[in-house]
């Protein structure tokens, strides 16, 4: 995919907002379940909390998933990273009421590659975010289109 520098910067800023708002920047690796992180509701809420190192798009992080998900209630999504010193991998769904879906703690005993299934309310960008030991943030994104939302009742 060709990206202009402007687009790349906008993406980076948007993600910084997301992450900043959910309290994962600049420090991370909380031992307990991070309630504040999982309760972040919207881009508007989180945009004001910009801070920490700017997230950088990275080819060493991959997000996998379908291009089109027929059922938003069950969307298989994977994240992986080949970076050295990854502390945490995260999956974020941009347009969900709670943007953060999952946080995986990475250590020596387990490979930095996880698959799970998420719910998506509507078509949205899905991010895989890798946080390395030196507090740098790398991400990859993929747009997944949903034909039937999974968050309605």
């Amino acid at each position: 995919m060709m990206q202009t520098r402007r687009q790349a910067l906008e993406r980076s800023a948007a993600l910084a907002g997301l992450l900043g708002g959910i309290g994962l920047l600049p420090q991370a690796a909380q031992a307990a379940w991070n309630a504040a992180a999982f309760e972040a509701k919207s881009l508007a809420d989180v945009a004001k909390a910009l801070g920490g190192s700017a997230p950088a798009a990275s080819g060493a992080v991959t997000v996998t998933g379908p291009d089109i998900a027929e059922n938003g209630a069950v969307v298989p999504v994977g994240c992986a990273s080949t970076l050295a010193g990854v502390k945490q991998l995260m999956i974020l769904v941009e347009k969900n009421p709670n943007v953060l879906a999952a946080v995986f703690d990475v250590n020596d005993a387990v490979e930095a590659s996880f698959n799970t299934r998420v719910k998506m309310g509507q078509s949205s960008n899905v991010y895989a975010v890798a946080l390395t030991a030196d507090n740098k943030v790398h991400f990859a994104q993929k747009e997944i289109k949903v034909t039937l939302g999974g968050c309605g009742g």
């Binding site: 999982f38 209630a73 994977g78 009421p97 879906a101 999952a102 995986f104 387990v110 799970t116």
Partner: peptide, 22 residues
Amino acid sequence: VLAVQWGPSIAKNPFLQFNVKG
């Protein structure tokens, strides 16, 4: 070997795949 935190946007009857080294 593994610690995962999940939010409510994980699908019903969750699936998880990971690789354990060694």
